[in-house]
Simulated assay, not measured.
Amino acid sequence: MNQLLTLYLLLNALRVGAFHPASLPGQADQNDYTTYHQTIARAQQLIARKHYQEAFALYKQVFDGYKFVFSRDYKVATQLALQVDQKQQAFTYLKKAIATGWTLSDLKKNALVTTLQGDPQWRVVEQQYDSLRALYQNGGNQDVRARVEKMFKKDQRKALLALFRIGATQERYAEKRFAPHSEQQMTQLLPIIDQYGYPGERLIHNGYWAAVMLSHHNSISKAYALKDTVYPHVKPKLMKALKSGQLSPYEFAMIDDWYMAVKTNGQETHFGYLSSSLTPQAKVKVDQCREAIGMSSVETIRLLADLQQQTGFNCYLPSNLVKKIGTAE
């Protein structure tokens, strides 16, 4: 249950050499987002080394090749456009980012983006903000969104109750009270996945709710995880959702690494999402797993974290991921 408490607090805190990039092969297969994410990961390598022009070209290729684009990538492209003196493109991507969820209050926290406020086009953005915001709020499958949001709020209330318990009482609560609740949640979530696909950013314009519920389910206790049949059943569906663009690599990594951490007492990880240190051998395996789903390597993430501190350039990665993972003996 300690893991469940940690996860509850963490998730609420989140709310929120020469390199030759490979080109997308012609017009990308819009049904396969593996290439999308791997190309973005290559662009992040370039950003980490301040090769902004080359990175910007890769982002534009992705946008041209795929119908659906994750909001995070429009945010990054807005900053890249500014770095390569493409102000008009910056405003174009800024509007797209707002239409996919970026709030005016959040974008004003970005020091690079706020440099646009002195341009006459900024007033146009402010005038169009409500209509752009409505595209995000009213888009997607509204019925599924409402159902998943209701489940998420119920999940948060149940998880919050764990905060008032300590020690063995937490463990009993997790297995006797939270587990039955979570199983009931899964009986509602899995049919949604089967009928509509994974309810993430693409389907319901929210990539947080379902990922939190699945992560909570995976963090009940080691004893529960060892006998659980839900996650082994749903994991192939999540892999399919990754490929179709319904689930981001970051959400999948969080869900999967909570399962691995709880099941193995923190001894094993696939993506290093929760890791503070890794042995050199484990780091190699983590980077291989990350590459397969289109996540940046441990080293690239370290460089991006440094870049953000130095310049303010923000790749909008999950805060638990933007950290320096140490080397364990």
Score class of each variant (00 low, 15 high):
K95P: 01
D32Y: 03
D32F: 05
G101V: 08
T34L: 13
G17W: 05
T34W: 06
K67Q: 14
D64Q: 15
Q89C: 10
R72K: 13
A90P: 06
Q38F: 05
F56W: 13
L24T: 09
A57R: 12
H37C: 11
K60Y: 13
E54L: 14
Q79I: 03
P21L: 08
S23C: 10
A55S: 12
Q53G: 15
L80V: 03
D64A: 15
F68Y: 11
D32R: 03
I40V: 15
Y52A: 00
K87S: 12
G17P: 09
T92Y: 14
Q53Y: 12
A57D: 13
A28K: 07
Y93H: 08
Q45D: 12
A48K: 01
L82H: 02
H51N: 10
I40F: 07
L46P: 02
A55G: 07
R72L: 09
V62I: 06
L82D: 02
T92C: 13
T100I: 10
F63M: 11
I40G: 05
Q30M: 10
Q44T: 13
F56R: 09
A55W: 02
V16G: 10
Q83I: 05
T35V: 10
Q45I: 08
D73G: 06
E54M: 13
Y93C: 06
V84L: 06
A57T: 14
K67D: 14
F56T: 12
H37W: 14
A41N: 15
Q83R: 13
A81H: 04
F70M: 09
T34P: 04
T34A: 11
D73W: 06
A57F: 12
T92G: 14
L58W: 03
A22Q: 09
Q88E: 15
L80F: 04
A28S: 14
S23W: 08
R72P: 04
A48R: 02
K60L: 15
S23T: 14
A90Y: 07
A28P: 08
I40S: 04
T100Q: 13
E54I: 08
T34S: 15
E54S: 14
Q89D: 14
Q45G: 11
A55F: 03
A22M: 06
A99G: 09
F63T: 09
K67G: 12
L82R: 01
Y74G: 01
Y52D: 00
R49M: 10
L46Y: 02
A81L: 07
A43S: 12
A81F: 04
Q38M: 05
Y59G: 06
Y52Q: 03
A43C: 13
D32P: 03
V76Y: 00
G101L: 09
Y93Q: 07
L58Q: 09
Q53K: 14
Q79N: 02
Q79P: 00
L58F: 04
I98R: 00
A97Q: 05
G65D: 08
Q83K: 12
I98H: 03
R15M: 12
Y52I: 01
D85T: 07
A28F: 05
P25E: 12
T100W: 05
T39A: 08
Y36R: 06
L94V: 07
E54R: 11
G101W: 04
Q79S: 04
L94Y: 02
Q83T: 10
H20S: 13
T78S: 11
H20P: 04
K75S: 09
Y66N: 04
V16F: 11
